[in-house]
Each structure stands twice: as C-alpha cells, then as structure tokens.
Nucleic acid binder design. Structure first.
Length: 767
DNA sequence: GCAAGGTC
C-alpha cells in the first residue's frame, strides 16, 4: 500500500480529492484518512509535530537536580500525539511506499522525518518526498509525478533548534524561578523568543520613564474667507521660548493676505496582500489582541471562510484565479457593489509584498459569508479579509493637497488642506482613512480676516507604547518566532504576569526579570541568539555543519552563562524580589501608616487586605474573590494603589470554563467608605462587548459592565440570577402578608405594613 | 510547574 502523509487533515483531504476519484473516508486508530482502492493508497493528515523533546522522567521534578545539570542532561523524544503515532504504527506493517507530503518548509521537513522515524522502527518501506506550493490540480499532480528524497539535513536543523530551545529555556526558567522563589503556577519563564520580546517592551517603557517633557509654544490663527473659516499655523512651528512666540503673537493684526497657493496630487498605492503579520496589524488597529485575532482567523479557516491564516507570503500565486474569486461575491448584500466594480475593470493587477514563500498563499476569502453565518467579531475580521482582498486588486487612490502661504502682519503662516480626490482602493477598504481637511478656494492676493490668533502652550510627548500589531511586526523584522507563534509569545507574557493592559505595559516583575537577565545572562535577552541559531541551522541544512557540533557549542555557551548566574545568584534574587514587591505594593495603612498586606481568611480562603501592624492596628479591607494585582494608579485620598481583580473562572452554559475577566476594583478604602460607588469606566460600557467576554484573554482588552466584573458571568446568567432574587423577594413578601392575615386579620389590616414587627413577635410567641 | 514549533 502507498501511504501519503500530510501535515494537517485539511491538506490530506485536498490532496485525496485531487489524486483519487474513488477516495472514501476512513478512520485509522480514530484518525480520519482517505483511501483509494483503485490506487491501493491511503492519505492521512497529522496535526503538526507528533513527537516532542523533553528531559527524562528523573529530571521532571525541579528539586531533583540543580538547573545547571539540565545542560548535560540527555534529551529524549516521546510521542506527543498518541493517536497519530498509533495510527502510523498500525499502518507501518501494511505499507510498501511512503510519500511525505508535509508543508514545504523546515518544520514541515522535520514533521515528515518524525513520521519517517516511527514507521522505520517497525518496517522498511521506500520513502519519498513531494513539495508543492498550492492545492491546485496541476501543482499537486506535478509534484506527485516527480517525487524527490527526504531532506534529512533540513530536518536535523529543526531538531537542533528544538534541542537548544529546550535546554536554554528549561535551565534558565528553573534558575530564575528558584532565584526569585517563585514556584508552582507563579514561576518565571525565560526563552529564546519570549525574553527578547519582553525586553523590547521593557526597553520602550524605560524610554518612556526617562523622558522629560519640555514645553513649547505654537501660534495658530483662525482665518475667514467669505464666511468660511480655517486655521493656519506659524511657519516656525515650535517655539522653545515663550517670550519669542508671545512677541510675534502680540503684533498680529486683524487682516491677512494669501501670498501663494500650491496644489498638488499624490497617489497612494493600495496595500499588499495579507500575511499573518499584516493581518494581525490590521486587526490590532481594530482593537483585537494578536492572540484573539489569530483565534478567530483559525475558526474562519476551519469553517471554510478564509484561506490558511498562518503564512509569511505576501504574493498571490499565479494559480489563484483572482477574477473567479471576485465572482463569488457578486450576489452578496455586503460586497456585491465592490466586487462588480472590480470585475468591470479591463484588467486586474494585484499588489505584491516583498516576502514570497512557497508553502501557503496570502490570506484571502475562500467563500462568501452572510452576516448571519458569523458572530460579530468573526464578521469584523472576515470583512477585513474580504475588503483587503478587494483593496489589493484596486487602483491607487489620489489625494489632492493644497498648501497656502499666508502673511499676517509680516509673519509667515501656512495652511494645509487635503482631500481624497480619487477614492481608488480606499472605496473598498475604509480602514484607517483620515478625514479630509478642507480649505476654502484661495488664490494669491486674496485678503483674509483674522478671527482670532491663539498662543498655544504644548509639551513634548514621550514615545508611545508599542501596540500588539507593532510588536508582532517588530518580531518579524528581528526574526523572532514564526508566523504561527508570535501572537502566542505575546499571550504568554500576559499569562506570566510580565505585561498587562493593551497596549502592553510591563509589570515591575517583567522589568526586574529583564534587568536581572540583561546584567547576568544578556545572551538570552536579544534577538542575536536567534540570528546565530538561524545561521547555524542554514549551515546544518547545507551540510556544512553537524547538528551535534552546533548543539555542543550552544551548551558550552550556556555553561558559561551559568558561571555568571551562579556567582550572582543572591543579587539576581534581590533584583527579582524588588520587582515582585513593587507589583504587590498596596500602600500605607490610612489609620496607622504601616504597610498593607494581602492575607487569606481561614474560614473561606478568600483574600482580604490587612494592616501589617496587626494586632496593634486591626484595619482591614474586603476585596472580591479572585487573583489580586496592584495597579500603578494611586488613590489621591487614601494613597492606596488600585486593586485589579481577576475573578476565578466559572462554568459557562456549555459546561466549558469561562475565564474571569480582570477589572479595576479601585481603591479598597474608597470602596469600604462607599460600597455602591462604581468605577468610572462602567459608563463607557458598550452592550455589544458583552458577547466578547469569554474570548478575551488579556486584561485591559475590553471594557465590561460592573455586574460582569463582579460575577464574571455572561449576561444571561446574571439575568437568571436577578430573576431568582426578585422571585424570592416576592415570595417572602407574600408569605409575610399571609401570616398577618392568619394571625390578626382585623387588628392589622394588610394596608398598614408599618405594624409588621408587632404581630411577628406575637406570632413567634404562639408558635 | 520549564522552550518553541507545528496544529485543533
């Protein structure tokens, strides 16, 4: 039998459909596959890697060996997908020929070799390898007509990467966790990708903190031309000295004259096709986190709405019929107008990006969805993909710009206007479109009235925090991570408590971790390690270096790093602990000034805030159940840090765990004084965001309702709760009234509820 | 309770 192995089930199904007319679905060890009786062949899809690398059992316990021992420890592969490995083992005895048809890249080669190794242990069929760039009939039949050999060197490069990542990651993770005394689920983690990413965020934060704002002044005049007003700024722009600006401002009169008008037209080219990074950037601009954008894209792909979302490619392959693809939108209520307009163009030339790869096409829509097919967030991203596809086929847009030079009392001013003159691709892709800035018609010599002239005091602003889209782009530029993992690295930093909010901001713990590593293990904090690894891997793939030699050299490097780490272990612990302390700093007790601390109530295990001056001071504050964090925001009245609460996860209607959503509880002392006061952000809650709660992963992504914050439950659950409460109250009231009637019907008519306490006492005496 | 890389 001929066995064909692909990287994922989707690929198996497509290849089977192209190669075998008589294919029938089948399950091998529970794994879906396609069989062709006529060709005596079977196509089976894996799910990425099926083997994983780890240390032997004895090393699993952190306390068994010092972290440094991991450098010399053996590493072993073990099946990470038991059903798939089982399926291959079952098939191994029946196959005479195996064709590896995994993705056309390094990891794909490695996944193929994993399958090869499993089968090779059991039997000895012949092996070959096919490489294809798309799932068209031509491409697939061509690839299968001339199979080549498995590239073991390329796979070895992948194995080497795996080994180095594990050894460095595990040894350093354990070292810093132990040095910082952080165990269990609170451990600190270090890795070749996540740590440089965290360093990027921390470095930026330090730039922001070090920034000193300087004041400057601008002169802005509001001018009138026949009832139409517009503004013009002094051509010097920023004045560093107020007196200088004030002197000019003072001499400005009531009239102005246009000196010169220059009109220009600028073309703006349409955007390039979506690869993963471009997609995440665009989704990030719409408010999605990188991780949630990819999660939704995955769902859209699985349900057949868009193409494979994990791709580096920004060039549509020749095999993609662009016109046919436009045709699927001809009857869509949302997209028909754009599609028909583009179809009416005499020819279609798509844009192309710089990156062109062979494994997957750029992300494009593969089917026409209706609004009812998708939920709100899915629709938003689906629409983004569709409109981006349209934009990449559209002509450039044109901006008309006008620059007017204006003289006010001998001082030079300038007014700028711009207008989208030819909408081009902007018509189909409205994202990020800036508003027109219109000027009245002006020509040289026109007299103008000065309605007012303002001397504006402004100050220089610190650089902005990187957004998630920007960070994913920076990672790509630095070679950190892959299309499939960059968003995960970011999510991991949130999960570890190294960053919070959106745009991500480092916590004190995150900052201290980078401080400690930069001082004593700087190799892991920059992308240099990845760059070197990439070079070595290319050399292994080209048979210029051996995997064993590269791994050995890397281990020696790590050993040297450990010299430094162990020598400075105490100092590293000190740096880390200072970070933890800052993250859990609540502030001084408003009653006695001692530090406030978090304690756990013995009765119900709930946390509360208490004064460390106990028993002299017995001040306490209640907080809702969940994980507590202390914000940088400090209450002006009590000098206490705001408390951020992540409620414990609850069970949703479908039985799945619904993760609690972090929210700002505010100052605990303010809450105690006035428990009914809601945090100010409640007012900005948008009702449609409620549906998004179970998906949101990072704190700060969304604004939610107060009820939500406290219960962490979806709306319908809270409605049910509310209903039960009201129902109980009604029953209680009815019971009371019945009691009144029963005991003293004449003396206490039911219309005088004020007398309730009396019969109750009598009643209890009798009963 | 460790990494990063696939995929679900």
């Amino acid at each position: 039998m001929h066995l064909i192995i692909t990287e994922k089930h989707d690929a198996a199904s497509k290849i089977a459909a192209i190669l075998f007319k008589d294919r029938t679905p089948e399950r091998i060890n529970g794994v879906p596959a396609y069989r062709s009786k006529a060709a005596d062949a079977l196509v089976i899809g894996l799910a990425g890697h099926i083997l994983e690398l780890d240390f032997p059992e004895a090393y699993q316990k952190w306390s068994a060996f010092p972290p440094r021992e991991l450098i010399r420890a053996q590493v072993v592969t073990y099946p990470s997908k038991k059903d798939l490995v089982g399926a291959l083992a079952t098939l191994a005895t029946k196959v005479t020929r195996v064709t590896i048809a995994t993705d056309y890249d390094r990891e794909g080669e490695m996944i193929g070799v994993e399958a090869y190794n499993i089968i090779k242990k059991i039997s000895s069929p012949t092996f070959d390898r096919v490489r294809y760039s798309s799932f068209t009939k031509e491409e697939i039949t061509k690839a299968f007509a001339s199979p080549t050999a498995v590239d073991f060197d390329l796979a070895a490069a992948g194995e080497c990467r795996q080994e180095i990542d594990l050894v460095w990651g595990a040894a350093l993770t354990r070292f810093v966790s132990i040095a910082g005394n952080k165990f269990g689920k609170d451990f600190l983690s270090v890795g070749r990708v996540q740590t440089p990413l965290l360093a990027l965020i921390v470095d930026r934060e330090k730039e922001i903190q070090a920034f000193t704002s300087k004041p400057y002044w601008e002169i802005v005049a509001t001018l009138l031309k026949e009832d139409r007003s517009f503004t013009a700024s002094h051509k010097r722009g920023r004045f560093d000295k107020k007196e200088e600006a004030a002197a000019i401002h003072k001499k400005l009169g009531k009239t102005a004259v246009v000196k010169d008008v220059k009109a220009d037209r600028k073309k703006e080219q349409p955007p390039i096709p979506f690869n993963t990074t471009e997609f995440v950037k665009a989704a990030s601009a719409l408010g999605f986190t990188a991780a949630s954008a990819m999660q939704i894209a995955e769902a859209l792909y699985i349900n057949g709405w868009i193409s494979y979302p994990r791709t580096d490619n920004t060039v549509y392959p020749d095999t993609l019929n662009l016109k046919d693809l436009l045709g699927i939108f001809k009857t869509s209520p949302d997209f028909a107008k754009s599609a028909l307009e583009l179809l009416a163009m005499p020819s279609i030339t798509p844009t192309r990006g710089k990156v062109e790869t062979k494994d997957h096409p750029p992300i494009y829509p593969v089917a026409c969805a209706m609004r009812k097919d998708l939920d709100d967030r899915q629709w938003k991203l689906y629409e983004l993909v569709v409109r981006r596809y349209f934009a990449t086929l559209s002509p450039a847009c044109e901006w008309e710009t006008i620059k007017a030079e204006i003289d006010i009392s001998g001082e030079p001013f300038a007014a700028n206007g711009k207008q989208l003159a030819v909408p081009g691709w902007r018509k189909h892709y409205p994202y990020g479109l800036q508003k027109d800035e219109l000027l009245p018609p002006l020509k040289a010599g026109d007299p103008l009235l000065v309605r007012k002239a303002d001397l504006l005091e402004k100050k220089t602003e610190p650089p902005k925090r990187y957004g998630q889209g920007k960070l994913v782009q920076m990672m790509e530029d630095l070679g950190l991570g892959t299309k499939a993992t960059r968003h995960e690295a970011l999510a991991k930093l949130y999960q570890r408590g190294f960053i919070e909010g959106n745009p991500p901001q480092p916590t004190a713990t995150g900052i201290s971790l980078i401080d400690a590593l930069k001082a004593y293990a700087s190799a892991i904090t920059s992308n240099a390690m990845t760059s070197k690894l990439e070079r070595d891997m290319d050399a292994i793939a080209a048979s210029q270096l051996k995997k064993a030699a590269v791994a050995k050299e890397s281990r020696e490097m790590l050993d040297k790093v450990f010299d430094q780490l162990e020598k400075n272990r105490l100092e590293i612990g000190r740096i880390l602990r200072s970070g933890f302390a800052a993250d859990s700093d609540i502030g001084p007790c408003p009653l006695c000034g001692s530090a406030l601390v978090v304690r756990e109530r013995k009765s119900d295990k709930n946390k509360f805030i208490a004064c460390s001056g106990f028993p002299n001071c017995r001040n306490t504050y209640n907080v809702p159940p969940g994980t507590l964090k202390f914000d940088k925001t400090v209450c002006e009245k009590h000098r206490l840090h705001h408390v951020k609460v992540t409620p414990p996860s609850t069970k949703g209607p479908d039985g799945k765990a619904v993760r609690g959503k972090a929210y700002d509880f505010g100052c605990p002392a303010c809450r105690k004084e006035n428990p009914s006061v809601m945090p100010p952000c409640v007012k900005t809650c948008k009702p449609d965001l409620r549906a998004m709660i179970p998906h949101g992963r990072e704190s700060g992504e969304l604004v939610t309702t107060e009820a939500h914050r406290v219960t962490g439950l979806p709306q319908r659950h809270r409605d049910a709760q509310r209903f039960t409460e009201i129902f109980t109250i009604i029953i209680m009231m009815l019971t009371l009234r019945l009691q009144l009637l029963f005991f003293c019907p004449s003396r206490y008519p039911i219309t005088s509820p004020v007398t309730i306490p009396v019969p109750l006492q009598q009643g209890s005496g009798r009963g």
